[in-house]
Design a protein around this nucleic acid. Structure first.
Length: 119
DNA sequence: ACGCTGACATTGT
DNA sequence: AACAATGCCAGCG
């Protein structure tokens, strides 16, 4: 299998994907990576976010796939992210946000085996 | 080149 | 929910 080289404009596309997230909504790192045409490059998205914390960039809308804030609570950025999210109407409890319905779709298993089968 | 580390994801306990 | 094991890839020493 040929290696999938990281395109030179990967960062640009990642930034575009982040900016595409509407206010009041959150997206996971993998989601952003996939949207940027870089499936499986979630860690690259994390690196980009750490470097490019520009004011125009809605960095606070990016959380982990399980809805948890990706930065340690002891970090100063943590509180600010929570503030920014709440300002947009996002419910944040204990460093964790409720993932939007689109991000937590019912799987076929859930339909067949019942809600109890959901993770 | 080698091993670690990291604002991650997925799967299985 | 929490932890461990893998996979992933870019920097750094």
């Amino acid at each position: 299998m040929t290696t999938s080289p990281t395109p030179p404009d990967a960062v640009t596309r990642i930034l575009a994907a982040i900016r595409a997230v509407p206010a009041g909504q959150v997206a996971g790192y993998g989601h952003i990576a996939a949207r940027a045409g870089l499936p499986g490059r979630a860690r690259l998205v994390a690196r980009v976010l750490r470097e490019h914390h520009a004011p125009s960039l809605p960095w606070h809308r990016i959380v982990r796939s399980d809805g948890a804030i990706a930065i340690p609570r002891t970090s100063p950025g943590f509180d600010e992210q929570v503030r920014r999210l709440r300002r947009e109407g996002v419910v944040v409890t204990n460093g964790r946000v409720r993932m939007p319905a689109a991000e937590t779709p019912d799987t076929l298993d859930a339909v067949l085996w019942g809600p109890a089968a959901r993770r």
